[in-house]
């Protein structure tokens, strides 16, 4: 059965999601930050982690964005095959939601029209949108505003199959170490392994939208997530990069089949303001 969804619905939801994402973190992120404040060994690190919690309270109560970099809006739209959209073009409806959300939510407009000419679009559009077709008659929207302090520190490595899992570990550690204080630690590290050049980057981005309390279903990947988190937290970078035992809150890894000749690895760094809101229409 075909189900009709009005694109106004989509716009309205995205508008609300932009505001929500920039003022409240998801519960798993909240919990992770609380736990980190308890376990942090460095006095200054502990103080910073407590300030981050205070910051979250002020953000929610006074409606001040958690971070002034309210990001470029990344949207994952998973569209059920039985959905029919009525109204404007879906892409326009999504961008209209971003436009309204960033305006009404007093969010910063951080998007430039052209990467070289750099004129601000003044409404934070366009969003970066990833569509996929799935089963069913619903639309699942995930909005993840992405700050660029951490985005700028992300990397892609086209490893050789012979580099194996050790090569992957090295890639992750090098990226985190280079990112250091620039990426506003404690970070969340999203990793994509496999696919092609662009697919592994997408996997890494998607990994960031997974709960930081969940692990991969694949046993060796789960082990790798745990091992990498342990190792990253031994780097000493700490909260704000000012030294400590909490450098990352989680390492989320997604994998995909790849070519016999390759081992692509993408490491997408996110700061502690790891924003994502999910809604199903």
């Amino acid at each position: 059965m075909i189900r009709t969804i009005k694109t106004e619905e989509v716009t309205k939801n995205i508008r609300e999601m932009c505001i929500e994402a920039n003022h409240y973190l998801s519960r798993d992120m909240d919990n992770a930050l609380k736990k980190a404040a308890d376990s942090e060994q460095a006095p200054l690190g502990k103080k910073i982690l407590c300030q981050l919690q205070e910051n979250l309270i002020i953000a929610g109560e006074d409606m001040i964005p958690i971070c002034q970099d309210t990001g470029m809006a990344v949207i994952f739209a998973e569209i059920g095959q039985e959905v029919h959209f009525d109204g404007m073009l879906l892409e326009e409806a999504l961008n209209e939601g971003v436009r309204q959300g960033y305006r009404e939510g007093f969010l910063r407009k951080s998007v430039v029209k052209d990467p070289i000419l750099r004129e601000n679009t003044k409404d934070n559009t366009p969003a970066v949108i990833h569509y996929s077709m799935v089963e069913g008659d619903k639309v699942k929207l995930t909005l993840a505003p992405k700050g660029f302090g951490s985005e700028n520190m992300s990397r892609i490595f086209m490893l050789k199959p012979a580099d194996g899992i050790e090569g992957v570990k090295q890639a992750i550690l090098t990226t985190v170490e280079d990112a250091g204080p620039n990426a506003c630690p404690p970070m969340v590290v999203g990793v994509g392994i496999g696919g092609t050049f662009e697919k592994c980057a997408l996997l890494a981005k998607q990994a960031l939208t997974r709960s930081v309390e969940e692990h991969s279903q694949i046993p060796y990947v789960k082990d790798l997530e745990e091992e990498m988190l342990r190792k990253i937290n031994c780097l000493g970078i700490g909260p704000g990069g000012l030294g400590g035992t909490t450098t990352a809150l989680a390492v989320n890894i997604n994998t995909y089949p790849t070519h016999i000749a390759g081992l692509p690895v993408a490491v997408n760094i996110c700061c502690h303001v790891n924003r994502h809101v999910v809604r199903v229409i």
Partner: peptide, 13 residues
Amino acid sequence: FAAVGGAGALLSK
């Protein structure tokens, strides 16, 4: 000096 990154609401006060 470094200010705490990602604490923009707190710092605005």
